[in-house]
Simulated scan of single mutants.
Amino acid sequence: MHKITISNLDDDMRFRLQKRAEKHGRSLEEEAKEILYMALTENREEPLNIATIIEQRFADLGDFELPEILREPIRTVSTFEE
Rank of each mutant, 00 (worst) to 15 (best):
L48Q: 11
R20L: 15
G62L: 03
T5W: 05
M1H: 09
L9W: 03
L40G: 03
P67E: 14
I6G: 01
D11H: 09
G62Y: 01
S27P: 00
F58M: 06
K3W: 13
I6N: 01
K3H: 12
H24Y: 06
I69C: 09
N49Q: 12
L61D: 08
K33S: 03
N8H: 12
E81I: 15
E81H: 13
T41H: 15
R44Q: 13
H24I: 02
S27G: 03
I69E: 13
L48Y: 15
G62H: 01
L61T: 05
A21Q: 00
R20N: 07
A59H: 13
D10S: 10
Y37P: 00
R26S: 02
N43S: 11
K23A: 05
V77R: 15
K19F: 08
A39C: 10
L40E: 05
E31D: 01
T41W: 09
L48A: 10
R44C: 05
A32I: 06
L61C: 07
E30I: 02
H24P: 00
E22F: 02
E42K: 12
D60I: 04
T79F: 14
A39Q: 13
E55H: 11
E30N: 04
I53F: 05
E29C: 07
P73F: 03
T5R: 08
P47A: 04
M38I: 08
L9K: 02
